[in-house]
Write a protein that binds this DNA or RNA. Structure first.
Length: 437
DNA sequence: TCGACTGCCACTTTTGAACCGA
DNA sequence: ATCGGTTCAAAAGTGGCAGTCG
């Protein structure tokens, strides 16, 4: 799978410097903060990509005429707190649902673990969108771009630049698996990208977003209007960036305050909370017991276990996190349509659609660009078969030397013939869902 | 020598299948 | 036969830590 920049090498691969986020990010040095613009928002990756079907290669060509938007949706300016965005979708605005949580992390200096197998982001990007044409179809995309050209290093108390950034890795884009869906669908509930995974494996075959460790990144969310499912035209694009979602990728947490925040806020880390069974005290006790000899089959310490009031609540008292939907399932969520387990199946999310976004290792199976459907199941073909068949680039780079046929781009904008997931009844649009057709 | 990375551990949450009763 | 609720096991996700590597 390939990113537009790989597909259009003539546009250049260098990533212009962008500024670190000003404001609340107290742990990041301001040294790089001045004198930059946000080039990625000016010329998002998508415009290069969209050029595959539009004439002008570097700018967003004027979209075909849109049907009139409902007055209530189409004319209002974005609210003052709206993120910076590149708009050719008038009236569309995004708001970060879990902004407070992000702000809390950002005030300390957000770190995101990246692993070879891929690690989810926490907090995840969860947005609500307004101003869409309820009838039109849209694609929701997320990518992560470097904020600047520096590599960072934790200096005991703060992050400081420590040299030049590593060469840019293949850009990948996560396509929300509900894409394409109608505006009404997207506006019905917050759109969650919590299944996005970050990896430092440059040969990652799963479609996770590839990042360098110790670099500062910024997630971006793109909305693309596909005029019709089977149209050759796109109907506009809007890109959004939330400054508080900037993070530094790491293979192990550097700032203990971030560790504490993650443990306190992430339900999967509940066991590491104070009084949790995996807290330091308990771990030490386990080690001692191990050294003394084999543990009893069922120890009182681990048995019915939870002290009155619950083992992990003590670190959460009055915490906004408890009311944060990121942690507290909304009533009815348990009843939502079952999602496929993550790992293998979750990769579908990347591959159901524009498989060509991503760099396909040459050793993986290839696939005809026509994206044939799995013959009998009605489900998408296994992800390993969803890669486009792309000619290797010069010098056996494994990347294409020229733009793909237009069918690739149009496939992306059309949604493609592959069955698309259907959202469950839960509060969030989820990666795991049932086929729409 | 040291910082970055990896693999494993023990934990929690999520998910889906199996089972049961109305 | 169908539906809804419960239970249980497996899978997935979490940070910590020791060991490895460059």
């Amino acid at each position: 799978m390939y990113h537009p920049r790989e597909l259009y090498p003539s546009l250049g691969t260098g990533y212009r410097l962008g500024p670190p986020q000003p404001g609340a990010d107290s742990s990041f040095p301001p040294a790089l903060a001045e004198g930059y613009r946000y080039p990625d928002l000016d010329t998002p990756k998508l415009d290069c990509f969209l050029s595959g079907i539009e004439a002008a290669p570097r700018t967003l060509a004027a979209p075909p005429p849109l049907p009139p938007l409902p007055p209530a949706l189409g004319t209002e300016p974005p609210p003052p707190s709206a993120p910076e965005g590149l708009h050719s979708l008038p009236g569309v605005s995004l708001s970060l649902e879990n902004r407070e949580l992000w702000k809390e992390f950002n005030s300390v200096g957000t770190e995101m673990i990246i692993t070879k197998a891929g690690r989810r982001m926490f907090p995840a990007c969860r947005v609500s969108v307004t101003g869409l044409d309820p009838e039109a179809r849209y694609l929701f995309l997320l990518d992560v771009v470097p904020v600047d050209g520096a590599r960072y290093r934790w200096q005991g108390r703060r992050w400081e630049p420590s040299g030049k950034a590593e060469p840019r890795l293949p850009d990948r884009v996560y396509i929300h698996p509900d894409s394409p869906a109608t505006g009404a669908h997207w506006m019905r509930q917050p759109v969650s990208f919590h299944r996005v995974k970050l990896t430092n494996s440059t040969l990652d075959p799963h479609g996770h977003l590839i990042l360098h460790s110790m670099h500062k990144y910024q997630p971006r969310i793109h909305l693309v209007r596909a005029a019709q499912l089977c149209s050759q035209h796109w109907g506009g694009v809007a890109s959004f960036r939330f400054p508080e979602t900037t993070f530094i990728s790491v293979t192990a947490y550097q700032n203990p305050r971030i560790t504490q925040l993650k443990i306190a806020a992430n339900p999967f880390a509940k066991g590491f909370r104070e009084n949790g069974r995996n807290c330091k005290r308990e771990r030490d006790a386990r080690v001692k017991r191990k050294l003394r000899g084999p543990e009893p089959a069922a120890t009182a310490a681990y048995g019915s276990g939870d002290a009155p009031g619950g083992p992990c609540d003590s670190t959460l008292g009055g915490d906004v996190r408890e009311s944060d939907p990121e942690q507290a399932p909304v009533p009815g969520e348990a009843a939502r349509a079952p999602a496929p387990p993550c790992g293998g199946p979750s990769a579908e999310a990347y591959l159901l659609h524009p498989a060509a976004f991503h760099g396909a290792p040459s050793h993986l199976p290839t696939r005809n660009p026509s994206f044939p459907e799995a013959p009998d199941s009605g489900r998408p073909a296994p992800y390993s078969a969803a890669f486009l068949e792309l000619q290797p680039g010069p010098a056996g780079s494994g990347y294409p030397a020229a733009a793909p046929p237009a069918s690739f781009a149009s496939h992306f904008l059309q949604g493609g013939p592959i069955p698309l997931p259907y959202p469950g009844p839960g509060p969030y649009l989820d990666v795991g869902s049932k086929p729409m057709y």
